[in-house]
């Protein structure tokens, strides 16, 4: 890649007190790419996402957005820049309607017409949300809540979507359906950083991937290379 990456992490370190969650992570995402960040529980994937969206401070290293350093930014400013973080565990506002959740996603935006267009786009992408737009989000099924969480993140009109384990707790059929939606989003031009434990599902839609283990980068490559990698197959795909 010769062009400037959209997002670049340089020697990123994140820690909770004395415990390092992520160390010396180098990662880059070009515009239009879908990049998977893989690893087991506690590998530092979520911490990396939280550092990018400034929910956590970076203890060392740099986060560069189109060559601009994000270290002094607050979370709301990163949303304004176009980084939308869809947090782990869905975190929809259970006591509010689907529509209210989606409207909250567009909280920083004031152009009502553009918001309406994006709302229609979300409803088209996830027709079940359109059917249930006046239901309380807490009454949706797990899969629908995940769709709502993704749609809500899309309502911020992001340039980069950070997805934290969207497949968590979903039935395999639903995972497929969700991944197809994500693939479609990526095809429509949205850049994505996809954190997953479900390596199969993630590598099916990502072009490249990074593998973290105990906070350190152990492997990176194209999706094809990673799928063939014997270490990864042994660790995550159950090969002998």
């Amino acid at each position: 890649m010769t062009a400037t990456p959209l997002l670049e992490l340089k020697q990123l370190g994140v820690r909770y007190g004395n415990i390092w969650a992520v160390r010396q992570l180098n990662l880059s995402i070009a515009s239009g790419e879908c990049v998977a960040l893989l690893g087991s529980n506690g590998a530092g994937k979520s911490s990396t996402l939280r550092a990018i969206s400034r929910l956590l401070p970076a203890a060392e290293g740099q986060i560069l957005w189109a060559n601009k350093c994000l270290s002094s930014f607050r979370t709301e400013s990163t949303v304004r820049l176009g980084i939308s973080h869809c947090p782990e565990g869905r975190r929809v506002l259970a006591k509010q309607t689907v529509l209210a959740n989606l409207e909250l996603g567009a909280w920083l935006r004031r152009n009502k017409k553009a918001i309406k267009i994006d709302l229609d786009y979300c409803y088209q992408l996830f027709p079940r949300l359109a059917e249930r737009r006046l239901q309380l989000a807490g009454s949706l099924s797990g899969g629908e809540q995940q769709m709502l969480a993704i749609a809500r993140a899309l309502m911020a009109k992001p340039n980069l979507l950070l997805l934290d384990e969207p497949s968590l707790g979903l039935a395999p059929l639903l995972v497929d359906e969700l991944m197809q939606c994500l693939a479609k989003l990526n095809k429509d031009g949205l850049t994505m950083l996809l954190v997953e434990q479900n390596v199969y599902a993630a590598l099916a839609i990502a072009q490249r991937g990074y593998v973290l283990e105990a906070g350190e980068l152990v492997l990176e490559g194209t999706a094809q290379e990673l799928r063939k990698n014997s270490n990864l197959r042994r660790s995550y795909l159950g090969d002998e």
Binding site: E76, H85, Q96, L104, W107, A153, A156
Partner: peptide, 16 residues
């Protein structure tokens, strides 16, 4: 209301 229901979600949506 969003902060009351889920502060982290509110922050992710850009609420200060």
């Amino acid at each position: 209301a969003a902060i009351r229901d889920d502060e982290l979600a509110a922050r992710c949506m850009g609420v200060s």
